[in-house]
Design a protein around this nucleic acid. Sequence first.
DNA 1: GTTATAATTGAACATATGTTCAAATGTTAT
DNA 2: ATAACATTTGAACATATGTTCAATTATAAC
Lengths: 129, 129
Amino acid sequence: MTSPTEKATDKKEEEKIPRGCRLVHLERVRRAIREAIEPREIDRLAETYKVLGDPTRLRILAALGGGEMCVCDLAAFLGLTESAVSHQLRRLKDTALVKCRREGKVLYYSLDDAHVAQLVSVGLAHVRE
Amino acid sequence: MTSPTEKATDKKEEEKIPRGCRLVHLERVRRAIREAIEPREIDRLAETYKVLGDPTRLRILAALGGGEMCVCDLAAFLGLTESAVSHQLRRLKDTALVKCRREGKVLYYSLDDAHVAQLVSVGLAHVRE
DNA sequence: GTTATAATTGAACATATGTTCAAATGTTAT
DNA sequence: ATAACATTTGAACATATGTTCAATTATAAC
């Protein structure tokens, strides 16, 4: 299962495997390490999905899919305080999922780009299958 | 802004709007309510994204993208205990993101279907843009 | 049967999360 | 200036989350 060539790989990969743990399929562990996504990207990806993983924020995104809305519109739709909505919108903006523009006193929020609607629809396709 | 016809819509929608809250754009709130995704679907969607929103679970999915692995392989790759990995795999299985097959004492985990890899890649495209 | 291996389960802990409340911005009109 | 409006901010609270540890199940070999 572990051929001589596999045992002779560079140290970098070996060092990433904790000592003393069981190794049922060493070559598979090595490949996973080799092809792993960078930690920074993993963290950003996780942050994005974490933000998507809340019913309130998903409802906000779905609503914005129909056109821009202001904070109090969303508060009325969601049945929440404007403060709660504002907090959520900030997270959505920090993750580049929504953007906003000012018109007088009112801030109009909308989806940041086409990717966002796609993210929601791919997820829907999964849960509906 | 609020035409006579808009005021004459059915009561069901009106009742969904909390009393006493500001209404800057009533017609937008109505449309959001009308086109809203069902609560059950929203919850399942949120649950799916919540599961995706963790670095450890994303690393597991990315690793399984290269082929099936057993629990101790993943534990070695992640640098975590097998218990921690098992807990995470259960969440991934409950959300239909991974599946597993038994071969003797070993359980081999793999991505549940093509949708899963797509979910990860769409997310990656978003954070990389 | 016993022993060893692969994985799961449940309790416990520290940390993170979502909402509310009260107070503070920023903008427009008077 | 002042007042009113739209939204944001920070602190506080209860609840949820991820990992570890110890104990348990399940399979295979002896």
